Simulated assay, not measured.
Amino acid sequence: MSTPDDVHRLARAMPHVTALTGPKGNTIYQVGGKSFVFFRTPQPDARFDDVIMFWVPSEEDKLALLATEPFFTTPRFDGHPSVLLRGSRLGEVGLDELTEIVQDAWLARASTRRRERWLAEQDGA
């Protein structure tokens, strides 16, 4: 099953990715200056300190992921195009599913040109 190392590996494998280190040592993956996977820092009002945020392409995609364990959201993220997942629960997510989630997060944030190029390369693979 999946681990935080898999999230890092999959995010870094996408093209044009920049990995930033936040002020509290958390990793933020961006494409074109836009975050797509974000290891959240502990929040004073949060129940968990190991939350990973994944951007989603649409509200429909968000609702589909939220219909399955272990993905969740909080009122703070109502209307935000993302889902949350505790790092300690990554083992409940298969590697194929995690790969698709990271790729979809990248696709949701990449420019049209980069998205179209990457998708064309996948069709040719």
Score class of each variant (00 low, 15 high):
79 G>E: 10
87 G>D: 03
108 A>W: 01
14 M>P: 00
76 R>E: 10
28 I>L: 14
46 A>L: 05
117 R>V: 12
117 R>M: 12
104 D>C: 09
54 F>E: 01
107 L>D: 02
37 V>M: 03
80 H>P: 09
81 P>G: 03
53 M>K: 10
80 H>R: 14
112 T>Y: 10
21 T>H: 08
24 K>Q: 13
49 D>V: 09
117 R>K: 13
37 V>Y: 00
79 G>L: 09
73 T>S: 05
33 G>D: 06
20 L>F: 15
124 G>P: 08
89 R>I: 08
64 A>N: 05
22 G>E: 09
122 Q>W: 01
16 H>R: 12
5 D>C: 09
74 T>R: 00
13 A>P: 05
8 H>C: 13
7 V>M: 05
90 L>K: 00
64 A>F: 04
11 A>N: 03
77 F>Q: 00
75 P>E: 07
49 D>W: 06
7 V>I: 07
24 K>P: 07
14 M>N: 05
68 T>R: 08
84 L>Y: 00
80 H>D: 13
14 M>I: 06
110 A>S: 08
65 L>M: 02
49 D>C: 11
107 L>R: 03
71 F>Q: 01
43 Q>K: 12
48 F>M: 03
123 D>I: 10
84 L>Q: 01
7 V>T: 05
103 Q>E: 13
10 L>A: 04
81 P>I: 00
102 V>Q: 02
82 S>L: 11
23 P>E: 14
116 E>N: 15
10 L>S: 02
113 R>F: 10
41 T>G: 12
78 D>H: 14
32 G>W: 07
57 P>D: 06
29 Y>N: 03
103 Q>R: 11
107 L>Y: 02
46 A>Y: 02
20 L>D: 12
44 P>H: 06
95 L>K: 14
30 Q>W: 09
90 L>T: 03
20 L>T: 14
63 L>R: 15
65 L>A: 02
123 D>T: 14
111 S>G: 15
23 P>Y: 11
55 W>I: 13
6 D>K: 05
56 V>I: 01
11 A>L: 03
49 D>A: 15
55 W>N: 13
13 A>R: 08
55 W>L: 15
88 S>Y: 03
28 I>V: 12
78 D>C: 09
101 I>G: 00
28 I>A: 07
120 A>G: 10
5 D>W: 07
35 S>R: 14
121 E>T: 07
96 D>M: 09
55 W>V: 10
9 R>S: 11
56 V>N: 02
14 M>F: 07
53 M>I: 15
74 T>S: 05
7 V>G: 02
40 R>Q: 13
49 D>S: 12
85 L>F: 03
30 Q>E: 13
56 V>L: 00
35 S>P: 15
109 R>F: 10
110 A>G: 04
1 M>T: 10
87 G>C: 06
20 L>N: 11
6 D>A: 08
74 T>M: 02
52 I>N: 01
102 V>M: 04
45 D>V: 12
37 V>N: 01
25 G>F: 06
10 L>T: 02
39 F>H: 06
87 G>E: 06
47 R>N: 09
